[in-house]
Amino acid sequence: MANAQCACGALRLKLSEAPQLTALCHCFACQRRTGAPFSANAFYAIDCVEIYGTSTEFIRTAESGRQVRMHFCSTCGSTVYWKADAAPLWIGMAIGSLADPAFAPPALSVFEQSKHGWVQLQETVERFQGSPIGRT
């Protein structure tokens, strides 16, 4: 279906299904990780992702207090995917690693409490000041 990779191609993901969720995250950790004002993310069922190549893992504690395991290429440093304790059946992937301008737009925008004021999103994007976990 789709393939994602780091900048140098040493770390690759083969995706056999469509994402279960697409989201933008404006939290400070994502801003620092990407060097951009937000991260664009896709979340897949973990069993539909094949990983090729080796990664270096960086473990950080999320605002929820749970751990997120970021996987980046040891050669070029691109963060390609992550696994969060809060969602053990999903694998998160940086949408930019697909290099596909036709990729589905985000459904959610989270941690807007730290969103840059000049960032404008379509009205169809569901917005949350913090995490959408536990929403009704």
Results as ranks from 00 to 15, higher is better:
residue 20 Q to Y: 06
residue 74 S to R: 10
residue 40 A to S: 09
residue 109 S to H: 08
residue 114 S to K: 09
residue 52 Y to D: 08
residue 6 C to I: 07
residue 119 V to S: 13
residue 63 E to G: 13
residue 14 K to I: 06
residue 11 L to P: 00
residue 15 L to I: 04
residue 131 S to H: 05
residue 10 A to N: 08
residue 122 Q to C: 14
residue 1 M to H: 13
residue 10 A to G: 08
residue 12 R to C: 07
residue 103 F to Q: 01
residue 60 R to M: 12
residue 23 A to R: 00
residue 126 E to R: 07
residue 50 E to H: 02
residue 70 M to H: 15
residue 1 M to A: 14
residue 103 F to H: 04
residue 50 E to V: 03
residue 34 T to H: 05
residue 43 F to W: 06
residue 135 R to D: 10
residue 126 E to P: 00
residue 53 G to S: 11
residue 73 C to A: 09
residue 132 P to I: 04
residue 60 R to K: 14
residue 9 G to Q: 05
residue 95 I to A: 01
residue 100 D to M: 05
residue 48 C to K: 04
residue 90 W to M: 00
residue 99 A to K: 11
residue 64 S to W: 13
residue 101 P to L: 06
residue 7 A to M: 12
residue 66 R to M: 13
residue 127 R to F: 14
residue 54 T to I: 09
residue 93 M to W: 00
residue 89 L to E: 08
residue 58 F to D: 15
residue 83 K to W: 09
residue 84 A to C: 10
residue 5 Q to F: 03
residue 65 G to R: 09
residue 125 V to I: 12
residue 116 H to D: 13
residue 49 V to I: 05
residue 121 L to D: 13
residue 83 K to N: 13
residue 125 V to R: 05
residue 108 L to D: 05
residue 27 C to H: 01
residue 100 D to R: 04
residue 53 G to C: 13
residue 62 A to L: 11
residue 123 E to K: 12
residue 100 D to E: 14
residue 79 T to A: 12
residue 104 A to Y: 13
residue 83 K to I: 14
residue 77 G to V: 15
residue 59 I to A: 14
residue 106 P to K: 04
residue 40 A to R: 03
residue 41 N to M: 01
residue 100 D to L: 05
residue 115 K to H: 09
residue 27 C to L: 06
residue 7 A to Y: 15
residue 72 F to K: 13
residue 56 T to V: 15
residue 84 A to W: 08
residue 27 C to D: 02
residue 20 Q to E: 08
residue 14 K to R: 11
residue 69 R to Q: 10
residue 38 F to Y: 06
residue 63 E to K: 10
residue 67 Q to G: 12
residue 7 A to W: 10
residue 117 G to C: 12
residue 73 C to I: 06
residue 123 E to Q: 11
residue 17 E to G: 03
residue 3 N to P: 03
residue 81 Y to S: 06
residue 121 L to P: 15
residue 106 P to I: 04
residue 52 Y to N: 08
residue 117 G to A: 14
residue 136 T to Y: 11
residue 30 C to F: 03
residue 133 I to M: 15
residue 38 F to C: 02
residue 22 T to W: 02
residue 15 L to P: 00
residue 32 R to P: 07
residue 91 I to V: 04
residue 68 V to W: 10
residue 98 L to C: 04
residue 38 F to I: 01
residue 122 Q to L: 14
residue 130 G to F: 09
residue 6 C to V: 07
residue 31 Q to T: 08
residue 131 S to P: 01
residue 51 I to K: 05
residue 31 Q to F: 05
residue 49 V to Q: 01
residue 122 Q to N: 15
residue 16 S to T: 15
residue 30 C to E: 02
residue 81 Y to R: 04
residue 5 Q to N: 11
residue 43 F to E: 00
residue 21 L to M: 10
residue 30 C to K: 01
residue 123 E to V: 07
residue 39 S to C: 05
residue 97 S to K: 03
residue 22 T to L: 03
residue 112 E to V: 12
residue 21 L to R: 00
residue 92 G to V: 02
residue 107 A to W: 01
residue 124 T to I: 08
residue 110 V to M: 04
residue 75 T to M: 10
residue 133 I to C: 09
residue 92 G to D: 00
